[in-house]
Computed example of a mutant assay.
Amino acid sequence: MGLTLGAIVLNVPDTTPASTFWSQALDYTPQASNPDFLIPPNRAATRLHLDSTDRTHLDLWLTPDTSLAAEITRLETLGAHLVEDWTYPENADFTVLQAPDGTLFCLIHP
């Protein structure tokens, strides 16, 4: 196969604060020629999850050596917050947060 997923396009209300939050949250770098395009440091492939019932969002996987609580705290200092009224399934392996611009994302814990 000659294709790889190059980017996930995330609809945001204002690209400037979104770029600030997501580049800090993910340790990505805004591309010099287009700061709305954020580049991962290791250029690793990105997964695409297809789901007919869920809304568009990012799933951010915690590395095995990362504490969920510490990562939530770090993201909250960047302006994110927990979505308190989310209905989770039993034994959920994810936590839902909201970026400062209102977009939802999930932290997936291994």
Rank of each mutant, 00 (worst) to 15 (best):
C106M: 08
P64I: 12
L68D: 06
L58G: 01
P100I: 11
D85G: 01
A7K: 10
A92D: 07
P110T: 12
G79L: 05
L68W: 08
D51F: 00
C106G: 02
D54L: 12
H109Y: 08
A69C: 05
D93A: 11
L97V: 02
T56S: 13
H81M: 04
T73D: 15
Y88G: 10
A92I: 02
R47Q: 14
P13C: 14
T53Y: 07
G79F: 04
Y88A: 10
A45D: 15
T87V: 13
P35N: 05
T95S: 03
L5C: 09
S23G: 03
C106F: 06
I108A: 01
P64C: 09
E76V: 05
Q31P: 00
T20M: 10
I8V: 14
P100R: 10
L38R: 06
W61C: 01
E76W: 00
D101T: 15
D65T: 13
P89G: 09
D93F: 06
N42V: 07
L82T: 11
P40D: 08
L78M: 07
V12E: 07
T95V: 15
T73N: 10
H57D: 08
L50P: 03
L60T: 02
L82I: 13
S19H: 00
L38S: 04
F105L: 11
I8E: 02
H109G: 00
L50G: 12
G79H: 03
T66H: 03
W22C: 02
Q24M: 06
T53A: 10
T29N: 07
E84R: 08
P110I: 07
D14F: 05
L38A: 04
I8L: 12
Q24W: 00
A18W: 02
D36V: 00
P13F: 13
L104V: 11
L104I: 12
L104A: 07
R74W: 02
H109F: 05
L26S: 04
D93C: 11
D51H: 09
V9E: 15
L75E: 05
L104K: 13
I8Q: 09
L58S: 01
A92C: 04
W22E: 04
P110L: 12
